[in-house]
Each structure stands twice: as C-alpha cells, then as structure tokens.
Write a protein that binds this DNA or RNA. Structure first.
Length: 297
DNA sequence: CATACGTGGTT
DNA sequence: TAACCAAGTAT
C-alpha cells in the first residue's frame, strides 16, 4: 500500500528531525497537552514555549487553575493573542473539575464538549495524550495531504469531511503509531511542506508526492484578502485589554479613553470585550473578568 | 459558508 | 512597507 508508506516515511523522518518540544515528552499528561494545543491555535511555537511553561508552573493541574480567577488566566496569557482562549481554558478547568474529576477526558465527544475545544484540538488531545487512533487534521496536515495525495498546490479554504477521510486513510492500524504519524505529518507541514516555499529537496515524501510529480502546479489566482489589522476593532480591543492586563485594580473609563480617540469605535470595542466575558464594568471603572478587589483598595 | 477574533516575526 | 503567516473556534 502506497498510503501506508507515506506514514512510514513520515515517521522515519520525524524520529530524526522532530523538534524537541516540551509537550512532546512521553507521559506528559492530558492537561499540559490540552494547554499546548489551545495556545498553539493560530500562534507560533516560539511564542507559546515560555507561556506554556509559566502557565503549567503556576497551574500544574486543572483544579489549580479552576481555583484562580479568570482575570489571572487572562493576565498569564500575556501577548499570545486571541485572549478569549485564556477564558476558555479557565472554563475548561472549571468544567474538568465539575464533570471529569479534575482530569482531561479521553473520549472525542467529551473533549469536544469542552469550551474552546473544537474538532482539531479534541483529536489532537485524544491522539497525542492518550494514543487514540483519530486523524488529527490541522492546516499543515490539510496542505500536506492536498499536495502529496491529491496533487493540488494547496488545501481548500475550509476544513471538510473529505479531509478527515483522506487523512484517516493514511494512518497505520496501530493506534500509537497512528498518533505518531499524525505528529509527523504536522511536523512535516510545519518545517518542510510549508505554505510559502516548500522544501521538497528535504522532504521524505518527495518520491511519492503527487504535487511534485505534476511539476508543482501553481495555486489559483489571488484570494480575497481579509481586512487589514490596523484601525480595526480588533486592534482597539487589543489596546484596551493591554491596559487592563497591566493594571492591578479597577481602571477608570477616562484612562481607557486614552488608548483610542474614536469614541464610537472605542465604545464598540469595549462593549465587545464585555460581551465576550473578558472585561467587567464596575461603576465607572473596568476590570478583567472575575478580578478580586485588591486589599489596598 | 463567511467573518470576527491578537500579536509579532518574516518576506 | 504592506502583505503574509502561525498546531483554530464559534457564530
């Protein structure tokens, strides 16, 4: 079977070339892996590393985080971006204590029911923490499969059930080995079969790659670009939250007024943060969610 | 299915 | 410098 060979080659390469990442340490546990997966959502490895270490040092078990405030979780999140993930992780910890005896569950459905855990993360935790044989499909795997198997320059814009089927077909029968294959595919996608400039010369799958065999056809024309970051509500939210993150107590509205001059947009952004549960309003001041009143008032 | 959601490094 | 990119999720 040629598909089985893809996994075999990928694993062989992975054994030699995988990065030495702390959450890959054998037996590390479900919680550290869950935290790493959530942090890695849309965030580069190099920025996650220190945050992951600090987070797990402070909250080694879900119960530790559940006992602390959401505000502290948001603070520890620092500048990783998408701070709602910190809130989701805190909610996760609370749910794990309430529903799963403080442990990260092993089943896909139970994982999927956790806040901030979607299809990718549920599969990643089940496979990498518990050795379950589930296809793990992230953007790297979708790109690699699109190229190596389908011969296309890139995967489609949205995850499709077909991606799951195509990836499942590549997995070895033995669960532990399937999980290793998934890790290998992700690592290959991250380091070799990259989006911009794939390094086919270094690719262990090159000899079997359909895209390379076709002469590396170019992707279709320009896709519609999203809005620029500068000037968006997103940027304003970031500025507002940065002030609250660094403050030790309630912040007067007047101080938040300084971060953005457009009253309408600033109000809209703040309302969004409150709506998302990241920020709370107390009288004429704002605080991070669940912030405890400081002793010194 | 499109869009909102942060941040900072690379090209 | 502007655009692109990085282990997605929720609506």
């Amino acid at each position: 079977m040629s598909t089985t060979q893809l996994a075999a080659e990928a694993i062989r390469w992975y054994d030699e070339n995988a990065r030495d990442l702390p959450w890959r340490e054998p037996g590390i546990g479900g919680w550290p892996i869950l935290v790493s997966e959530v942090m890695l959502q849309q965030t580069p490895v190099v920025r996650v590393l220190p945050a992951w270490r600090a987070w797990l040092t402070r909250w080694p078990r879900p119960a530790d985080l559940a006992a602390d405030t959401p505000a502290e979780a948001i603070r520890m999140w620092g500048r990783l971006g998408y701070p709602r993930r910190a809130l989701r992780l805190h909610e996760c910890a609370v749910a794990l204590v309430a529903r799963h005896d403080g442990e990260v569950p092993t089943g896909l459905d139970e994982l999927l029911a956790l806040p901030g855990v979607g299809d990718y993360t549920a599969r990643a935790v089940a496979a990498f923490a518990y050795g379950r044989r589930h296809p793990v499909v992230d953007t790297n795997v979708r790109r690699l499969v699109a190229r190596a198997v389908a011969g296309e320059p890139d995967a489609g814009p949205a995850t499709r059930p077909a991606d799951l089927v195509a990836t499942e077909a590549l997995l070895p029968a033995a669960p532990e080995r399937a999980a290793r294959a998934s890790a290998a595919f992700m690592e290959l996608g991250a380091l070799v079969c990259t989006a911009r400039s794939p390094r086919c010369v270094d690719c262990p799958l090159a000899a079997r790659c359909a895209w390379r065999a076709s002469g590396r056809t170019a992707p279709p024309g320009p896709t519609r670009r999203p809005q620029r970051y500068a000037g968006t509500d997103r940027q304003v939210r970031g500025k507002l939250l940065a002030v609250l993150r660094e403050a030790t107590g309630p912040v007067p509205r007047a101080r938040l007024d300084l971060v953005w001059s457009d009253d309408l947009q600033r109000s809209r952004a703040l309302a969004g943060l409150i709506e998302d549960g990241l920020v709370e309003m107390l009288d004429d001041t704002c605080v991070l969610a669940g912030e405890q009143p400081s002793a010194d008032g």
